[in-house]
Design a protein around this nucleic acid. Structure first.
Lengths: 149, 149, 149, 149
DNA sequence: GTGGTCTAGACCACT
DNA sequence: GTGGTCTAGACCACG
C-alpha cells in the first residue's frame, strides 16, 4: 500500500495471547479476503518476512505451512510462495459448522452484554458494510507492482 | 433437565484444545443466555461440580473465579454460588469491539469458504432462529427446583 | 515388546533422507496397524520419547502434531497422548487415490526390474501373508502393561 | 502422441512437493513401462526438453543423469540420448526390497483407512487391469516417427 | 507433569 | 535464492 508493494499489510503483536504464527495466518487470509492480495501474487520469502516482522524465520515458516495446508498459498520450489490461483477450501462443511458455533457464541455474548437481537443484527449489518467499503477502497483494480505467478 | 435440577447441562471435553476451565465458563454463560439458569439460581459447589465432571477441583475453581470476574455469578460466603441478580457486564465497550472483530473474522472465513455475503447473512439468520426456538423450548417458565438466592 | 511395555517400537535413522519426524509418524502408524498399539493406549510423552530416541523434543512434537492431524492419536490436556478411541481418517478419498498412484508406481518399477505381473502379484501375496503372521505374533491379546485412556 | 513424435508425454508440476527432476525421471520411466517409449527411441536433448517444459536445463540434466545411472537411457556422445537397448536394472535386489517396503506401507495405510485386505486386494487388481488396458491402447505397435538408435 | 510456542543458529535439497 | 529440517534451550498455559 505504501512503500513496498506487497509487504506492508501484516502486523503481529508478540504480547498477544494468540500465537504469532497464527496472527500471520490470519493477516494473510484477511488480506486475501480484502483483495489486497490476489491469486498469483507473490508473498515475501520466509526470511524476508521474518526480518520485516523482527521475528524468527521458523515462526514465519510455520505460518506459511499452515496457509499451504489450507490451500491459501502455494509453494513453488526455488521460486517462492504465491497466493493460490484456484483456491479450494478443505473441510468446508466442518468449517461452516465452526462458523455457526461462532455465531452461537456471539448470541451468548450479546445476551451477557444485554444487547437485544435487534442490536446484534445491526452490528452484523454495520460491520459488513464497513467491510464492503474497505474492500472497495483498498483493493487495487490491478496490481502493477510485485512479482506474479 | 433431568435428575439434579441444576447440574446436568455442562459437558466438558478433555480432548478439546480449549482449556477445560474455559469450557465450563462458556457452558455456564450459555445456560444463562438460554434461560436454563436464571438470576438467583444456585450453582453446584466447586467440589460437587468437580466430582460430577470428574475433573480437578482447581479447574472448576478457576472457572468460577473467571465467571465471578465477569459478574455472571456471585459467591455468598457460607451460602454458595448464585447467578448474579443484577448482572452488569464489565468492559462492555471493549467486549463489543471484540464482537465486531469476531464478525470480521467470520467475513474472512466466509470469503475463503467462497460464501457470498448473502449466504453468510442467511447463516446468521438461521442460527438466530434456531437459538430463539431452543430458548423457548428449554427455558423453564419458572424453575421450581433447586435452591434460590 | 521387551522391557518398557510401550516404548520399544520406534526406531529412527538420522541418516535417512526421510525426515525423522516423519519416520516417527510412520512408526506409530505401523504399530497401530500391527496391533502393537491399540486404541486408548498411552504414548510416551514428547519429552520421554525425545530422550529415548536421543533427538530434540521439537522433532517429536512435530510428529505428534501430525499424528493428531491424522486422527491417529489424541492429546488430553495435562494427561498425555493416547491412541484415538474412534479413529476416523480425514481425506479418505484423496488418500485412496494416492494409494492407487503408489500401486501404479509399483507397476512401473516392476517393469524396470523386469518382473512380470505374475511375479508382482506373488510379491503382494507374500508381503500380505508375512504381515498377517506378524500381526498374530506381535499383537498382544490384551495389554496388561502401560496406562490406558 | 501428437505433434512431435516423442516429447508430449512429460508433465511436470512445479507446485508439487516432489522435486521436478524426479518428476521427469518418473515420467520417462512411466513412458517406458507403458511402451510409449521403446528401446532405441531417441529422447529430446536436455536443452530441447528444458525449453519445452519451461524449466532450467540443469534440472533436466540432473534427471537425465539419474536415468542414466538407472540404466534407463544411454547417452551416445554426439548423437543424443536413447532408451537403453538392453536394459539391466542395477541394485535389483535392493529395489525389490524397497518394493516390499512400499507394499507394507500400503498395508499400513489401508488399515488406517479402515480398508480390509479384501478391498486392498481389489484395489491392486483394479489398478493392474487399468494399466494393462492403457498399455494396449497407448503403446504403438511400432513407432514410425522419431529417430532411432 | 503435559504439550505449545518461540528464538538463534545450523545444514540440506532444490532451482 | 527458496523452503524444510533439526538442535539446544527458553518460557508459558493447563491440570
Amino acid at each position: 500500500m505504501t512503500d513496498r508493494g506487497m509487504g506492508m499489510w501484516i502486523h503481529v503483536d508478540p504480547r498477544s495471547p494468540v500465537p504469532m504464527y497464527q496472527q500471520i495466518v490470519e493477516s494473510v487470509k484477511a488480506n486475501v479476503a480484502k483483495g489486497i492480495l490476489n491469486p498469483g501474487d507473490k508473498l515475501q520469502s520466509v526470511r524476508e518476512l521474518s526480518v520485516e516482522l523482527a521475528i524468527n524465520h521458523n515462526t514465519v515458516a510455520k505460518a506459511y505451512r499452515e496457509l499451504e495446508r489450507e490451500n491459501v498459498i502455494e509453494v513453488i520450489r526455488g521460486r517462492g510462495t504465491f497466493i493460490t490461483l484456484q483456491p479450494t477450501a478443505p473441510n468446508a462443511e466442518q468449517r461452516r459448522e465452526e462458523m455457526r458455533e461462532t455465531i452461537r457464541k456471539l448470541l451468548i455474548e450479546a445476551h451477557h452484554l444485554r444487547m437485544s437481537h435487534e442490536e446484534l443484527w445491526q452490528m452484523f449489518h454495520q460491520v459488513m458494510e464497513e467491510w464492503r467499503l474497505s474492500r472497495e477502497t483498498e483493493a487495487p483494480e490491478s496490481t502493477e507492482e510485485g512479482e506474479k505467478l
